[in-house]
């Protein structure tokens, strides 16, 4: 494939027992692009993100990001390769402060590890300071800095989603995988999220976003891939996807039913 492709998903197949969750799924995302991943419930979108981040090992196929093969890596290695994610059902540490939640995301790149912390290497203090600065920057970026000291569990739902985003960007990833970031947000928050994501892309991050909110996806993404029953139906611009009979069929049922209604 062409060199400008940043993320390449190549014929991924994932099975759970007898169920084929992903069946030869391939698509590519260019650098600095927001790519949407849509499809009905159970079509394999979250499974694909779990495959990409090393939580599942695919039966076949590869995922590469700017030439680095992600398949076969552990989740923490994927993160170290510059790919960060959010979860569909928010996974923050509710008892920890917002600050600590985000700071955990800066642990990997800080180079602080049990053995060098135990030996108290000279650079330790400097590394901790660097982590803390990056943490406050990420919180500030999502307007959460004034709650930094509060436990994360005390936030509203929308703020928790922002916190997950702040945690995901603290190590300046090159690729963000967002699993339904707009779900459960009110229209004002959805708008706000759109602006923030565009801002991230302007900063050079590429984004793959799963979302059911069609207005959000169509307004935000430059290209969209559609999954149905673990198969990719198509990749195209929002307009192409909206006009595709296959996509309409996947969401609403058979076209023959619709045509029979019309006639």
């Amino acid at each position: 494939m062409s060199a400008e492709n940043f993320l390449e998903v190549d014929s991924i197949r994932q099975e759970f027992g007898g169920l084929i969750a992903l069946d030869d799924v391939s698509f590519a995302v260019r650098k600095g692009e927001i790519h949407g991943l849509i499809g009905p419930n159970g079509s394999g979108k979250s499974t694909l993100i779990n495959v990409m981040t090393g939580i599942y090992k695919p039966r076949r196929g590869t995922v590469t990001v700017s030439g680095t093969k992600l398949t076969g890596m552990r989740p923490d290695q994927v993160y170290a390769a510059g790919i960060a994610r959010t979860f569909q059902n928010i996974r923050i540490w509710p008892e920890l402060s917002l600050f600590d939640n985000v700071m955990i995301g800066a642990y990997r790149s800080s180079q602080i590890r049990p053995w060098n912390a135990l030996l108290r290497v000279r650079k330790l203090k400097q590394r901790v300071n660097g982590m803390e600065e990056a943490t406050l920057d990420a919180l500030t970026r999502f307007d959460l800095d004034r709650y930094a000291k509060r436990p994360a569990g005390s936030l509203s739902y929308g703020q928790k989603k922002l916190l997950e985003l702040a945690r995901a960007v603290v190590a300046s990833p090159t690729l963000l995988l967002l699993d339904e970031p707009a779900a459960g947000l009110n229209p004002v928050e959805v708008n706000d999220l759109q602006i923030r994501l565009r801002d991230l892309v302007d900063g050079g991050t590429s984004i793959l976003v799963i979302e059911h909110n069609m207005k959000f996806v169509m307004g935000l993404c430059e290209s969209i891939s559609v999954l149905n029953f673990g198969r990719k139906i198509m990749t195209g611009t929002p307009a192409e996807v909206q006009g595709s009979p296959d996509v309409i069929e996947a969401y609403l049922g058979s076209t023959s039913f619709q045509t029979s209604q019309k006639s």
């Binding site: 981040t53 923490d76 170290a80 960060a84 920890l96 955990i104 642990y107």
Partner: peptide, 29 residues
């Protein structure tokens, strides 16, 4: 003093949500 460094935080993250800790870059095993 080890616990006062971010390593203590990494252990807390692991204890309370191993999957999230791994996804946020902590080498779990």
């Amino acid at each position: 003093s080890l616990r006062q460094t971010p390593v203590g935080l990494a252990f807390t993250a692991l204890r309370t949500d191993e999957t999230a800790a791994g996804a946020m870059g902590i080498p779990v095993a």
